[in-house]
């Protein structure tokens, strides 16, 4: 049956989702956490389905997480790293989509290095599409797993003070998190050097800080973003040394947040650039590994939900 709360075929982004939709996705995800922790982790829920991980950009974590999620639901998974084949041969995105569509996959998980490309692709295929990250636009499953992590630890999201620190300008994780956390009533702060804060960001409803000492005050959650140092040194900030001095999370800066504030990071981390090992490995405060764990549960929930919706849609057509 088509899901009552989330009747959509795709998950392209968090923007535009309603609070009940998001909460529903979190609730469904929660139910997979136990399965993942049990010794027999597999189910046969998606046994007959084909899921394609279509990655136009390198990824290890997200791709593996989706792959595991699909395998645990019994689906057939194909990983396609497009970067090195079709694109270099000159095929357009739409042609690639049409070609794939002709092979009748059930779910496409797509990562693409152009903002908006996943949406374009979703309009050209009949299957479900999950946005696995389109550069600096959205990464919905990451925001969901972040929210699930927060909710399981703090038992709520509404009213929490969440600081998102670092390269907001280029981060899909940040954007998806803004939409999700604000939709569920959290207070979201951004802390970054001005060079990494996109223009008109405050219009999205977040508070902007350029000083960690002010921004971290009384926060419940401190979410650090990855700095792409190879691309950014000299350009957006002068050096990793200076970045760490002013924007890296260390024990001293963390002490300004609430004593039970959680430390999060979407990974992979640059230790000594945006985060000090001392706090990254603090197992009382850091939930970075838990984020990875819950990521699989979230992706299982999303795969199951979208496949069910898709099946319903197809059955209707047959009738």
């Amino acid at each position: 049956m088509r899901d009552q709360v989330y009747p959509h075929r795709d998950l392209l982004g968090i923007e535009g989702l309603s609070p009940p939709e998001i909460i529903h996705l979190l609730n469904l995800s929660d139910s997979y956490v136990e399965l993942n922790r049990s010794s027999d982790k597999t189910s046969k829920a998606l046994e007959t389905l084909t899921i394609v991980n279509l990655f136009f950009e390198n990824s290890t974590r997200t791709r593996t997480s989706f792959e595991l999620a699909a395998l645990r639901l019994g689906a057939n998974v194909i990983n396609m790293q497009i970067g090195d084949s079709s694109i270099s041969k000159g095929e357009t995105l739409i042609d690639t989509a049409v070609t794939l569509n002709a092979m009748h996959p059930d779910v496409l998980v797509v990562r693409h290095p152009q903002s908006g490309a996943v949406k374009l692709l979703s309009e050209k295929v009949n299957c479900s599409v999950i946005n696995g990250g389109d550069v600096s636009h959205e990464h919905p499953t990451q925001a969901l797993l972040d929210a699930l992590t927060i909710r399981r630890r703090k038992n709520k999201i509404e009213g929490l003070k969440v600081a998102i620190c670092g390269d907001v300008a280029h981060s899909r994780v940040a954007r998806s998190n803004f939409y999700l956390l604000l939709t569920l009533g959290a207070e979201v702060r951004v802390i970054a050097p001005k060079t990494l804060i996109p223009s008109f960001l405050s219009n999205l409803g977040v508070e902007i800080y350029t000083d960690m000492r002010e921004g971290l005050k009384d926060c419940d959650i401190v979410m650090m973003l990855r700095v792409q140092k190879e691309r950014m040194v000299g350009n957006f900030f002068p050096s990793t040394k200076e970045y760490f001095r002013f924007f890296g999370l260390d024990r001293k800066k963390l002490s300004l947040a609430k004593p039970d504030a959680l430390i999060m990071h979407p990974g992979p981390m640059n230790r000594g650039v945006e985060i000090d090992s001392d706090v990254a490995d603090d197992f009382e405060r850091s939930v970075i590994r838990e984020q990875v764990e819950l990521g699989v549960a979230v992706r299982m929930a999303v795969l199951k939900l979208l496949s069910d919706n898709l099946l319903e849609e197809k059955n209707k057509k047959v009738k």
């Binding site: 000299g234 957006f236 002068p238 040394k241």
Partner: peptide
């Protein structure tokens, strides 16, 4: 800018 070369930010904060 580093080296006054006008290409990369110097360590302004430090």
């Amino acid at each position: 800018t580093k080296g006054l070369r006008g290409k990369e930010l110097a360590e302004i904060g430090l």
